[in-house]
Design a protein around this nucleic acid. Structure first.
Length: 273
DNA sequence: CCGGGCCTGCGG
DNA sequence: CCGCAGGCCCGG
């Protein structure tokens, strides 16, 4: 499910209900998550106490708790939600924290592609350390994007999905940003001139900011921390629109597979060079 | 780079 | 039954 805008929406929902609240105890389902990694139950038990901050780094949520951190990645179907303690647990609930506020914080993940990690210093986790530039940060400028793209003999789609360069985009927003910037998903990134890099930079930021304002894209599974779907699916220009007219010209949206992922683009307005 | 795998569910 | 799904990892 979740790319940067969805994770940011979850963060904004959680922060006011977690900061200053104490994680009193934790329960786990016993099932492994991403890559069959068992949950670190002892680490989670050591990471109880008052929540000082709820932050986001790319698609990761970072809860600072009593000087340590809980790091959550939602994979495809993960959800972090606040629920009344008395509410029945949904199937595929894998972690439940009891909060001093009387509610639960619950991690639910049908496909178990997500991760719940803990660490004394999250910056030292390889998952976090290896992340590239956050596209909504001040450091992400057209010049920075040009630097990241220089010398990379990869197509634009693959480049933008690579979390070690620009971190936070996934399949939907890569399709949308490339469409917005009129760049063909198979355009080689080291051959984009500065004006096209600048257009891409702007498209990435515009697409992500709009999606955050719309509280994320819900195609199927995504829900925020209150269980509410987002609204951004109503604004998608290319993703999921195979065969429909391009909203911006006389082309027709096509679907191809790049990097094993469905890729939607308009052959009329998105150019390779 | 590609293909496959992880896991479950849904829709054709 | 088959293909597909907002992510990521690994081996060849």
């Amino acid at each position: 499910m979740p790319e940067l805008p969805e994770v940011e929406t979850v963060r904004r929902g959680l922060a006011p209900r977690l900061v200053g609240v104490t994680l009193e105890s934790v329960w786990t389902s016993g099932k492994p998550l991403r890559m069959n990694h068992p949950l670190d139950v002892r680490g989670l038990r050591r990471t109880l106490g008052e929540v000082a901050a709820v932050e986001r780094r790319a698609k990761y949520l970072i809860l600072t708790v009593a000087g340590r951190s809980i790091v959550v990645h939602l994979g495809m179907t993960g959800r972090l939600e606040i629920a009344p303690r008395a509410a029945e647990r949904e199937p595929h609930t894998h972690v439940v924290w009891s909060l001093s506020s009387g509610a639960d914080l619950r991690y639910v993940d049908v496909r178990r592609f997500g991760a719940v990690l803990c660490a004394a210093d999250p910056a030292q986790l390889p998952e976090i350390e290896l992340l590239g530039e956050d596209p909504l940060s001040r450091r992400f400028t057209p010049a920075r994007l040009a630097e990241l793209a220089a010398g990379r003999k990869r197509n634009a789609k693959t480049f933008l999905l690579d979390q070690t360069r620009v971190a936070g985009l996934g399949n939907i927003y890569v399709c949308e940003a490339l469409h917005h910037a009129r760049i063909h998903p198979e355009a080689r990134v080291d051959r984009l001139d500065l004006s096209r890099i600048t257009a891409l930079h702007r498209a990435i930021q515009d697409v992500l900011r709009k999606a955050v304002a719309n509280r994320g894209t819900t195609l199927r599974d995504y829900r925020d921390s209150s269980g509410q779907p987002g609204e951004n699916q109503l604004t998608l220009q290319a993703y999921g629109r195979e065969g429909e007219p391009c909203p911006r010209g006389d082309g027709q949206i096509r679907r191809v597979v790049i990097q094993g992922r469905s890729t939607f683009f308009c052959p009329a307005c998105q150019r390779r060079s």
